[in-house]
């Protein structure tokens, strides 16, 4: 296994220091939340308060997790007093952050798969309990909508992962007074993203979020432009985060 993989595994937390009791309770809470979610969903479904579009919308909330997970991975180094050891490893800051980014992405994928399974379960339940309404939303619809949604989420995910990393690093530099502004910018971006997203989803032709964000361009073009923009921005933020960690980190 390469050194980079070792760093990634350390950040994912697969290998080390798992508290068995904590892991046990985490599983209990997770499954309890799933059961509660299904009960609430079933009630809403039976009272016709939930429409099939929710299947496409729900996974979008996953994006939040990528931001907070990556932020927590950086903050953990300071809180756990491992920051000195971490920064002294004979690797560049970009490699150290690259490992955290990869770990953040893998963790996000894990959550995304769980969310996908839940979405499909919601859909199947809708088809069984309310066949008259849900019969129009067949396998083709679900595949297309979820496919589009996941492409959009995966396109934005790197941007949110590096934003989380940047925010955590910023907190440990002399620039920490800027942090509240970061929250404002982040909040603005998220609300813009979601308002765009919800608008596009409530539109009858279910155009892609990107299409709504870039009116006048075709779906394919806007998707490519959007993804490229997101990736370029993510790359620039990553470089800036590595620079801050190298030059201005306070340990």
């Amino acid at each position: 296994m390469s050194t980079f993989s070792k760093l990634v595994m350390n950040d994912i937390g697969i290998a080390k220091n798992r508290n068995r009791q904590f892991a046990y309770w985490s599983k209990i809470y997770f499954f309890t939340a799933i059961i509660c979610g299904f009960i609430i969903y079933t009630v809403l479904l039976l009272t016709s308060q939930v429409t099939p579009e929710v299947i496409g919308i729900a996974p979008a909330f996953l994006l939040f997790t990528s931001f907070f997970t990556s932020m927590a991975m950086i903050i953990r180094e300071w809180k756990g007093n491992t920051v000195g050891w971490w920064l002294q490893l004979p690797y560049s800051r970009k490699m150290l952050l690259g490992a955290k980014f990869t770990a953040g992405f893998i963790r996000f994928l894990r959550v995304a798969v769980i969310a996908l399974v839940i979405s499909l379960a919601f859909w199947i339940e809708g088809m069984i309990l309310k066949p008259s309404i849900w019969k129009h939303y067949d396998v083709g619809y679900v595949t297309t909508e979820l496919g589009k949604m996941y492409i959009e989420i995966l396109a934005l995910c790197p941007l949110l992962i590096v934003s989380g990393m940047l925010f955590a690093i910023l907190r440990h530099t002399k620039f920490r007074p800027v942090s509240p502004l970061f929250w404002v910018a982040y909040g603005g971006l998220i609300s813009l993203m979601f308002s765009t997203f919800f608008n596009s989803k409530t539109n009858t032709d279910f155009r892609s979020t990107w299409t709504f964000a870039f009116p006048g361009l075709s779906t394919g073009t806007t998707l490519i432009v959007g993804i490229l923009l997101s990736f370029v921005l993510a790359y620039l933020i990553f470089q800036f985060a590595a620079f801050l960690l190298e030059k201005h980190a306070e340990v």
Binding site: N10, K16, R18, N81, G84, W85
Partner: peptide
């Protein structure tokens, strides 16, 4: 570098801690 704070994995053995750190040093 040996920092002031102890930087070890409590749930691992001494050997496995060293193996982990050694691997990170390539």
């Amino acid at each position: 570098y040996v920092p002031q704070e102890i930087t070890l994995y409590e749930k691992l053995s001494a050997y496995n801690n060293l193996r982990f750190f050694g691997e990170l040093y390539g």
